[in-house]
């Protein structure tokens, strides 16, 4: 027993020793949505440079808490911090990859892309006001589609999530009633329906319930071949959730006018733009206690911007447009060491 304790203590001590010995190790924590692509990047980065990155997918809220406490080198969040909060926390924030949210349905005889929805209509459905699929309000936008006389079952995420934040922000933007009665957050008080845990939980409930409608993140919908609905965008066109349409939304957005890159890519202009698009973000401290460490973090993301697009696309994330990457690189001058000089370049 003593021996076992001793071994554990020695093991813990040696782990700690390794951590302090290799200064090139960087650590991050936060959002689960981009975790697969960060892991993939870290793996390739290590193979190419020998530098390690340790990312813990503990959720966006956890990421913000950890970077605030200073226990990690960077935090990751799907829900961008408002410029005021950024200033208060002393953070610099920048986007890494883009994803989107897709409404998925289970209607007998209806295939992907056959049902058309608008933002306001989706809000009414999720508010429980439109209760049946053959409601004239839905039929109005779907001439020629045989919608069944089925009750609508709303399925939402039960866990706090950036996906919910994007989705509810979009509904709040398109429907004043939603904004005043429910609001936008990573968890809200849902007026109706049931909650599934994670994308897979939502997808399972939708699949098992004829007449269900839910929302999942794009990569999940694509990889699992879920039946999606078309959404009307700002230009009035009904678009499908496809890679090009997310990129269109990101490209059309006015990042220059977004201080601290606080920008939700919701309802962006352009005929191709998918209306529920959003980036995921990285938070670093604006004033780094250890300049070398700060440099390593930014070097990693600079490397990822240059070399990581292929890996991101493979995993169904969308890379940032080149122009936005340049803007981000410029913003890194705000990350300074103890001497007040920029840590990177």
């Amino acid at each position: 027993m003593f021996k076992r304790y001793l071994t554990a203590i020695v093991a813990a001590a040696s782990l700690a020793g390794v951590g302090s010995a290799q200064a090139a190790d960087i650590s991050g924590a936060g959002a689960t949505f981009p975790a697969p692509v960060y892991a993939k990047w870290a793996e390739t980065y290590r193979a190419q440079t020998g530098n390690r990155l340790n990312y813990q997918a503990i959720g966006s809220g956890g990421g913000v808490r950890q970077i605030t406490a200073g226990t990690v080198d960077f935090g990751a969040t799907d829900k961008p911090l408002k410029p005021d909060d950024l200033a208060a926390g002393g953070f610099v924030m920048f986007p890494t990859v883009i994803g989107g949210v897709v409404p998925v349905v289970n209607l007998p005889g209806i295939k992907s892309g056959q049902v058309k929805l608008t933002g306001a209509l989706t809000a009414d459905i999720f508010r429980g006001v439109v209760k049946k699929w053959n409601d004239p309000l839905i039929a109005k936008f779907n001439p020629g589609v045989q919608l069944p006389n089925l009750p609508i079952t709303v399925v939402h995420r039960s866990d706090g999530s950036g996906t919910t934040f994007l989705f509810t922000s979009y509904l709040a933007m398109k429907a004043p009633r939603w904004a005043s009665e429910v609001g936008a957050n990573d968890a809200v008080k849902w007026p109706t329906g049931l909650g599934g845990k994670g994308n897979d939980g939502v997808a399972a409930y939708v699949k098992q319930t004829p007449g269900a409608i839910g929302y999942v993140e794009y990569a999940f919908a694509k990889q699992n071949n879920l039946t999606y609905a078309l959404l009307q965008n700002k230009a009035g066109k009904y678009v499908a959730p496809a890679a090009a349409n997310f990129q269109a939304a990101a490209a059309n957005a006015n990042w220059k006018a977004a201080p601290g890159f606080y920008l939700l890519l919701l309802d962006q202009p352009g005929g191709e733009a998918w209306p529920i698009t959003g980036a995921t973000f990285i938070l670093v401290k604006a004033r780094q206690d250890d300049a070398a460490n700060g440099r390593e973090v930014l070097a990693f993301f600079d490397w990822a911007y240059k070399n990581g697009d292929g890996a991101a696309a493979q995993l169904d994330y969308l890379p940032m447009p080149a122009a936005v990457k340049d803007l981000v690189r410029k913003s890194w001058s705000k990350v300074t060491g103890p001497d007040g000089k920029p840590v990177y370049r």
Binding site: G61, G62, K79, D159, G160, S161, A187
Partner: peptide, 12 residues
């Protein structure tokens, strides 16, 4: 328990 498991990670 389910409420805590669902929301704690993202409760900012």
């Amino acid at each position: 328990a389910s409420t805590i498991a669902n929301e704690f990670a993202e409760a900012t």
